[in-house]
Design a binder for these strands. Structure first.
Length: 518
RNA sequence: GGCCCGGUCGUCUAGUGGUUAGGAUGCCGCCCUUUCACGGCGGAGAUCGCGGGUUCGAGUCCCGUCCGGGCUACCA
């Protein structure tokens, strides 16, 4: 039988990193086995429903490049793929009736107040809390009939068999045992007629012929009631795979405080999707050997359930940064420039940086100015549209020294502006020396005469000045020149950078630097 | 409180009875070099949560214990 997995998010908000990891595993597993990946929207909670959420999921998944074989946006033979629509189609009412007929579910007419009272009583007496029988589990049918006749609201609960041990098979942990006397009778159909997760997800997994259920480990505690439901219906069970959670660097659940948790925020920060997937896949899974840098194809080829880890993993942004830098270096410069341009054009990039507020700046560094980051990126994009070859060369020189796509804005800035921003410390350190005026005038003269440059020619200028003036090291010549041309003390190799700037830009910059000396 | 899950360098991990406990990241140093990076080399960093047992031998098996986490909703 072919593998069928499903990603079943609840449309209550954003798609976060933990969920991304689950879909990634679904996708890798399906691809590895030549199976199908299905998207199902679990919108059974009207109170938490968020209309923008489904679009966020589809957008995010499109960005990372995870595709589905069936889903609400593309259809398929097992639709509809939204649970609200499946409810309208009568799917859940059909199956809940069957379950009642089988004696495995019953109507319960308790009011919320009564349930609260019960819970309080249980807590005070240090008893397990939950609905273990109440007034309705074993009520006489005539009593229920009377309540229906009165029009009392009710829920439908699963009748958990008592005095049994349920052994749930988990693909990662093996056998997990539960005493059914600790399992309250869960609500399957709510007062508003909507099914709960416990019912809808299991019915749908069966109907959609899901073979493997990958979900978060928070479901482990309720897995026995799901396990039992399959037994009650006499259905074959899927393989349950409870994936460990991803936590922040402090060991707590990943949240806003750890930086981005929304997947599109990582996109906006300039992480490449391949690097993100590579990184995410390695939290809670490993190919079993020492490989770490892996392409999507390699991930698919290597992915199997045996490599899954039981313990929670931490989200280490430093490792993501390393992987992302590695990815940037792997790309051809043409491919990289296209990736950068696509990145700048994406709506989430502008939205993110324009609203960015640096809440915890790095020590000893000035806080990141979000709107400024954005302006630099736009400048790069616009320049690339008018002079692609020039920007391409600038990117080529910076490719070795950045970690994110966003970094190119600042790294390439001096190539793109007419008047570079002079770093005060750089000027102070290198423009004070006597020979600098002579050096800049010398360069200005030679550059003014030139039509074109080359790396060799640029190098020869510097070397000539150094030897003519008795410098046995290039430093005192190189550094002031760099400052004059870029305003900074760091950056690509001077000769390469001079070559890319070309004679006329160098001329303008040297003149401006010379003016500063006086 | 009850039930359940987890615990190998700071972090991600390899490891399934016999290894100097391996790799990666991060950190430090050296090399490369005109700077910052990249890259290369090297270093520090893990009494495998702790305590018992089983065994000739345990990170690996068993028991206990501690710590962390999840569930304990008419949320998923």
């Amino acid at each position: 039988m072919s593998v069928r997995v499903r990603f079943a998010p609840s449309p209550t908000g954003l798609l976060h990193v933990g969920a991304l990891r689950t879909v990634l595993f679904d996708y890798l597993f399906a691809q590895h086995n030549g199976g199908q990946n299905i998207l199902r929207i679990e919108d059974t909670d009207r109170t938490r429903y968020n209309a923008d959420s489904e679009k966020e999921f589809v957008d995010t998944l499109a960005w990372v490049g995870i595709e589905f074989d069936e889903g609400p946006h593309i259809g398929g033979p097992h639709g509809p793929y939204r649970q609200s629509e499946r409810k309208e189609a009568g799917i859940y009412s059909h199956w809940i009736e069957r379950l009642i007929e089988l004696g495995h579910a019953y109507m319960a007419f308790d009011t919320p107040e009564e349930l609260n009272e019960m819970r309080e009583y249980q807590q005070i007496n240090k008893m397990p809390t939950g609905y273990f029988g109440g007034d309705w589990r074993d009520a006489d049918p005539s009593k229920a009939a009377a309540a229906i006749a009165e029009g009392k609201p009710y829920v439908i609960r699963q009748r958990i068999p008592r005095d049994r041990t349920v052994v749930v098979e988990d693909a990662i942990r093996g056998r997990v045992e539960f005493d059914t006397n600790t399992l309250p009778d869960p609500v399957l159909i709510k007062g508003d007629g909507m099914p709960t997760y416990h019912f809808a997800a299991m019915v749908d997994d069966h109907l959609m012929e899901i073979t493997h259920v990958l979900r978060g480990e928070e479901w482990i505690a309720t897995s026995p009631i799901h396990w039992l439901l399959f037994e009650m219906f006499g259905w074959d069970r899927p393989v349950f795979v409870h994936c460990p959670v991803i936590v922040g660097t402090d060991g707590k659940k990943l949240s806003k405080r750890h930086g981005a948790t929304r997947v599109l925020d990582y996109a906006a920060q300039g992480y490449d999707k391949e690097a993100l997937k590579n990184f995410i896949a390695l939290i809670g899974w490993s190919p079993g050997d020492d490989r770490e840098v892996m392409s999507q194809q390699e991930l698919i080829a290597a992915f199997d359930l045996k490599g899954l880890q039981a313990s929670p993993g931490r989200f280490d942004i430093e490792k993501l940064r390393w992987l992302n830098g590695h990815r940037i270096r792997q790309m051809s410069t043409e491919e990289l420039l296209d990736t950068i341009l696509e990145y700048v054009k994406a709506p989430y990039t502008m939205e993110y940086w324009m609203n960015f507020v640096d809440e915890n700046p790095m020590p000893n560094k000035k806080p990141t100015d979000g709107p400024e980051v954005w302006r630099r990126l736009v400048r790069l994009k616009e320049k690339a549209e008018t002079n692609r070859s020039y920007v391409l060369e600038a990117v080529r020189l910076e490719q070795e020294r950045v970690q994110t796509l966003a970094d190119f804005g600042e790294a390439c800035e001096f190539f793109l502006v007419d008047e570079v921003f002079f770093d005060e410390k750089a000027v102070e350190k290198w423009f004070g020396q006597e020979h600098v005026g002579k050096l800049l005038r010398f360069l200005l003269e030679r550059v003014s005469e030139a039509q074109t440059a080359s790396v060799e020619w640029c190098e020869s200028l510097i070397r000539q000045f150094a030897s003519d003036h008795g410098f046995d090291k290039l430093g005192p010549v190189v550094h002031p020149t760099r400052v004059a041309l870029t305003g900074k003390t760091v950056g690509p190799g001077l000769f390469e950078l001079m070559n890319v700037l070309g004679p006329s830009r160098m001329k303008a910059r040297l003149e401006r630097a010379l003016a500063m000396l006086k």
